[in-house]
Amino acid sequence: MAESKQTSGKPMTLVDPIDMSLLDAKFRDDIKSMPDGEELSACFACSTCTAACPIANQWTYKPHQLIRMILLGMREEVLSGKEIWECLTCFQCQERCPQKVRITDIFFDCKNLAAESGKVPEKVLAIAKELIDKGQLYVVTSDWEREDLGLEAAVPGLSTDGIRAILKETRTGRLVKGGE
């Protein structure tokens, strides 16, 4: 019989014990009350979401673990991790969940909770600033290219006043102000 390579230390399959005193039971209620968070508790940890995720192998915590961590109340670990921001938003996990847990949507909820406490990656904050300053993520610079193709140099109907006025008054405005 082949000898097991792992003779001492904890088995690879076990994770560090969770410190119960650090759990925040309100976390799952917060998520459940957010858009598309209702089905959170239906998760039975089958990890189909993780199998469907094209980048789960890059992550310390896999999608099914993140859902479990939300249910357990590991607010800090989920909201401070890189995983929620690296979610491709490809919806493959959500589409395949046999329990109809809206996983991708829930990760959007997590990002909103992180943003509410000011935790936004620098380059995402730069996008917020673009939206406040310019009202769009891409601005026409090569208008001669448009004219060559028979299009009007300036995009017909374009007005950025509306979006800028809205976002100045919502969280985007507060984040950009706080980041300055």
């Binding site: 858009p35 917020a128 985007t172």
Partner: peptide
């Protein structure tokens, strides 16, 4: 934008 400011 959806990620940082759902309501906006």
């Amino acid at each position: 934008l959806r990620a940082i400011d759902y309501f906006g």
